[in-house]
Design a binder for these strands. Sequence first.
DNA 1: CTCACACTTCGTCATCCATCGAAGTGTGCA
DNA 2: TGCACACTTCGATGGATGACGAAGTGTGAG
Lengths: 122, 122
Amino acid sequence: MQELLNIARALSDPSRVRILMFLRGRELCLCQIIEMLGLASSTVSRHMSLLCQAGLVRVRRNGRWRHFRLPGAGAPPRVCKCLRWLEEALAGDAAVARDGRRLKSVMKVPMEVLCGNGRKER
Amino acid sequence: MQELLNIARALSDPSRVRILMFLRGRELCLCQIIEMLGLASSTVSRHMSLLCQAGLVRVRRNGRWRHFRLPGAGAPPRVCKCLRWLEEALAGDAAVARDGRRLKSVMKVPMEVLCGNGRKER
DNA sequence: CTCACACTTCGTCATCCATCGAAGTGTGCA
DNA sequence: TGCACACTTCGATGGATGACGAAGTGTGAG
C-alpha cells in the first residue's frame, strides 16, 4: 500500500501533475521544467525527486544536466495504469492545453539560454 | 484538474484507501467503518466527507444512520477508472487481505451492538 | 416535548509539506 | 587548481492535514 500512497501523494500537487503532463511523449531538461513552472529551482528539484521516488518519472544524468521522462513499458503496471488514468482524466483540460502550447515555445528556446539567462529572468 | 487533485488527495491517506477497499462490492454503515478503523467517529466522519466530495463514495441516509458505497456505473469515467486502478494496484496487498478477513467478522456483529456498545469499547 | 442516539462541525495540537533563499555538492573547462 | 554552472540539500516559514474531544445538529421514540 505504501507504493500506492506514494503515487497518490505525488499526484496531490498541481505542479507535479503539470510536470507529468509536460513529459508526455518527450524528455525534458530540468531547466525547461523550471521555466514552465516559474518556481525556484530548489522547489522543482524537490518535486522531481518525489516523482522519481514514486516511480512516475525517470531521470537521465548528463554531466551537470538532468533530463526527465516518463517511465516506459517496463515500469510496474500500477505506474503505467496510473499515468494512463491521469492522461485520460485530464484530456480536454484547459490548463493542460495552455501548458502544452507554452511548452512548444519553451522548447524552441536553446537550452543554453534557459540554463544561463533563464535563472536571471525568473 | 481540480477534480483530479481532489481524488489524488483523497487517496493520499491510508485510512481512506482502506475505506475504499472495505466498500468493494458492499455497502457499509458508518459504525462499521468506525469499528474497522478504530478511529474517533469525528475523524471517520471527516474522512467520509472527503471521499464523498471527491466523488469516490456515495452516501445513503437512513434516519440517523449513514450507509456508504462505491459509486456505480453512472459515475464519471475518471472515478470509475481510478477505483479500478486502486483495486488492481492493491491486489495481493497483505494489509488489505487482513482487513478483508476482519471485515467479515465485523459484518457479523449486529449493528445495534456496534452503534451502541461499539463506542464504549473504542 | 424531552431525551437518547448517530452523526457533523469546531477548536486545538502535532506533524507534514510547498516554497524560498542559502549553503553544499558535483561537473566541466581553462 | 580555481571558477562557473547545474543541481541538491538544508533551514525557515506559513499553510494544510489527521487526530482527538467538545460542542452542535438532526432523527426517532416515548
